[in-house]
Amino acid sequence: MRTRTKAWVGLLLIGGFGLFLTSCDKAKDPEPADENELITTVSLTFTEQGGGSPQTFTFRDPDGDGGQAPTRFDNISLKANTTYTLTIALLDESKSPAKNLTTEVQEKRDEHLFVYTATPATLLTYTYGDRDSRNFPVGLTGTARTGAVGTGKLNVRLRHQPPVNGVAVKNGTVAPGSDDVNINFNLTVN
């Protein structure tokens, strides 16, 4: 009887030790998801190259997507046939004090891409002024060149493109990842 008990105890110890070793294998644990940030405020600052005062246009939605309507949504008005330096600032104002997400995007620039698209395309073209560590565009700063007089939209998207299973997916295109921001400003070029 004792031999049988010892055998069972031995098997339990071996099985338990094997289970312990398997549960400690970190390579099999999935990586935690790199979640999208809550961005409540987006400010675009256009500064005319060669002089001129900066103009800032802001979108503010304090409770984030859904819920209440945005409390501020400026219309962008720019001069025709003019070159501007464009910078963007992001905040999460649902926290107190507000969290500066521009800094976070800068720190994680290998995982983020801003895309600026004017409709119609003749209203404004954008050229990236910053790059990540793999030489892909980021879009925290760049050059915006307006075209002829007209009205339309300026779509501003921030693509969140974190690595998948430890492999970088950002490739300089809009395809990988998901939207942190996707808003349409009214745009007037006059």
Rank of each mutant, 00 (worst) to 15 (best):
N81W: 09
T143Q: 07
T188R: 15
D130S: 03
P176S: 14
R4N: 03
L187Q: 13
V189L: 03
N171P: 10
N75P: 03
E107M: 04
Y84I: 02
T3F: 10
D34C: 04
T102S: 13
S178R: 09
G66C: 03
E35D: 10
T146C: 13
I88N: 11
Q161F: 04
M1G: 07
G15H: 01
L124A: 07
W8V: 13
N165I: 00
A118S: 15
W8I: 06
E37M: 05
A175T: 15
Y126M: 14
T85H: 06
P30M: 01
Y116D: 11
G50P: 02
D34L: 10
G50S: 00
F46H: 03
T47H: 04
G10N: 08
N75L: 04
K95N: 07
T45P: 01
A7M: 09
T117K: 12
D179Q: 03
A33F: 12
E35W: 13
D25C: 11
R131W: 10
Y126P: 15
K28A: 13
L13M: 11
L78C: 10
C24L: 15
L19P: 06
V149S: 14
V42T: 12
Q49G: 00
P70R: 09
S94N: 11
S178F: 09
I39N: 01
T3Q: 02
I88M: 15
P176I: 14
V149F: 07
K28R: 15
T103R: 05
P62E: 05
E111A: 13
V156L: 01
G142N: 08
N171S: 09
K108F: 06
Q55C: 01
R145I: 14
T22N: 10
T47N: 06
R134E: 13
E37K: 05
Q55W: 00
S94F: 04
D65P: 04
